[in-house]
Design a protein around this nucleic acid. Structure first.
Lengths: 351, 351
DNA sequence: TTGAAAGCGCTAACAA
DNA sequence: TTGTTAGCGCTTTCAA
């Protein structure tokens, strides 16, 4: 079904403006685009004509010749109430939008959710509606990266993209937090505190590399951990609560837990409180993300791994515009401009 | 700053496909657009060419002649961590996206946040990049509605739009919940339960008409309420918690509270629990929205005013496409297709 | 069923 | 500083 403009009156064109003001289309175009080589009088007359006629440039026509649109797509999936309610994503998006705005680009958020969204989004991106794209939380094996590549559309990924075979994609720009290193900092802190039964609430396996990396960091420190000290959850508050409950049922003697996100950690804290465990005396808790809206308002305030999420968002946008601040980490030698952003532990009261 | 396509290789055009397959541009165009009057052989050859060349239509060119884009903008503001974290918005957006997808339209979410976003978004909408627009939570006096009107861009508003002078806008399509009626249902229920000190946690005054309408509904029933039984909050969980704490400090004897959103109600319930009040025995609580993700998982489950939020989203999209299901309520006679969606009370355990 | 040709509204050489 | 001209890639009459 087709949606048509309500006003039947043809919208005024450059040509109309030119006629009205008695100059050529070129001159009008120059005024519209703020070029300098226009006489003051001409400029004035053209501007009068523009406002008299209510002229608004037709971007499709302009786009057809200039080959750019002033818009950047941000593609993300919004599975089952997840992403959208996550302050992490909120913060990241804010960073992206801010930086895009500084470059005068309009951010368009597109969702990848239902099965057929995928094709429509691909068409949209392929249709030349945007100058570039920032993609998030793609499932391993998603075909969008190669599509985008084939189209020659500038792209930056949020999180290290994986190919179908599980190998990292080459030649793709991405920004990722140092999930593994951050997890190591967290768990090492718990060890330094003298804790001996350190469990973890890990993120969802299928979807995000971040979850796998954070779990790997946990295992890096606790080489001999029994697998049953690990519980998976889905990065939601409720998921964190349920996982914490399961852990404590199985291991009433645990004295510390590394929770792979602040949102999950807030759920875990609540369960611990309900079960009468004191934090940090009985159980020390460390989170991940340091979303201050959460970590500073839990009881007790959350010790957590800080990521500059807003900064990561800004960085993605900047990478897209080619201002490749090569803050590469640990000698990453891939040819694409990719950045792994370091983390640091923020010690509050929960551990 | 300008973002340019990475691949220098010119993208194949309709003309290339035509040459490759030995037919005319018109025929290729017909195949691409799924027209029937094409011979089977021609269609096959064209399709081969398309995939061999990796042809993707240039939408700007198509748009220039067809005057439509296949995209619809959804404009919303995301003030201070609010909107984005609200499951209400999540649900609404899901409905909108689903319905737009059924019409083959791509939803583009644009945010209105920083002061200069406003101008950029207006330019974007004016630039003919979209076939229509759905707008939310505009501040009273926002100029976007009149801009959109002047452009002749089909538009639907979420929530009853107000003009600068506080009067409702005329001639604009909108979808709104029956906030006032719903609030009346909620408060009447509390009265029927025999409660005598019924407080309310209202929504933010400045921003949403919904907040004013819900408060009006509360006042409709409790004509003689002292103003100090009302506490405002900002539609967040934390805001609801703080407001509840303030109310209970001022009125230790209150025996019921109508909270203007489920998210705030979940915060309020937590405070009541922490203060040792039993719900519903000591204090009965009724929420608003019936977002099951919240209302079914609070302790105790929340009695609340149900709105079919997803349905409202779908309705907005349908209105935009002119399929005006005139479910108008209470004889609304405005000329624009606008719908006030009824609510119903869902009684669970909190009241 | 197919093709030729005329735009859609704009920008960008190039000439004046 | 200005105007003329030639497209950008597509759809859409109209004739064949």
């Amino acid at each position: 079904m087709v949606l048509t403009q309500r006003s039947n009156a043809r919208r005024p064109t450059l040509e109309d403006v030119a006629r009205w003001s008695g100059v050529s289309k070129s001159t009008v175009s120059r005024v519209v685009n703020g070029e300098l080589k226009v006489s003051a009088e001409a400029a004035v007359r053209v501007r009068e004509a523009i406002s008299a006629l209510g002229y608004v440039p037709n971007q499709a026509a302009r786009q057809l010749v200039t080959r750019h649109t002033g818009a950047v797509a941000v593609v993300a999936s919004q599975p089952e109430n997840r992403l959208f309610l996550d302050p992490y994503f909120d913060c990241l998006l804010r960073g992206i939008r801010g930086e895009l705005a500084r470059h005068g680009a309009q951010a368009l958020l597109l969702f990848l959710d239902e099965p057929d969204d995928h094709a429509r989004v691909a068409d949209y991106l392929g249709g030349g509606h945007v100058d570039g794209v920032i993609l998030f939380s793609l499932r391993p094996g998603d075909r969008l990266p190669e599509m985008v590549d084939r189209l020659g559309l500038p792209a930056v990924f949020g999180g290290r993209p994986l190919l179908r075979d599980g190998h990292p994609a080459r030649g793709q720009a991405y920004v990722d937090g140092d999930n593994r290193g951050g997890a190591r900092q967290a768990v090492r802190h718990l060890v330094d505190l003298g804790r001996e039964r350190i469990a973890t609430v890990a993120g969802p396996y299928d979807q995000e590399n971040s979850a796998a990396d954070r779990l790997a960091g946990y295992r890096d420190i606790l080489l001999d951990t029994a697998p049953h000290l690990v519980e998976r959850a889905d990065y939601t508050r409720q998921g964190g609560a349920d996982a914490m409950a399961a852990l404590i049922d199985r291991h009433p003697d645990l004295d510390a837990v590394f929770v792979a996100s602040d949102l999950m950690a807030s759920g875990a804290l609540q369960v611990l409180r309900e079960r009468g465990r004191r934090v940090p005396e009985d159980v020390a808790v460390v989170g991940f993300d340091d979303l201050v809206a959460i970590s500073e308002s839990t009881h007790p305030p959350l010790t957590t791994v800080h990521q500059d999420v807003g900064g990561m968002g800004r960085l993605m946008a900047r990478l897209l515009f080619g201002r490749t601040e090569q803050d590469t980490w640990e000698g990453d030698t891939s040819e694409a401009p990719s950045v792994v952003v370091p983390t640091r532990l923020v010690v509050r009261e929960s551990a």
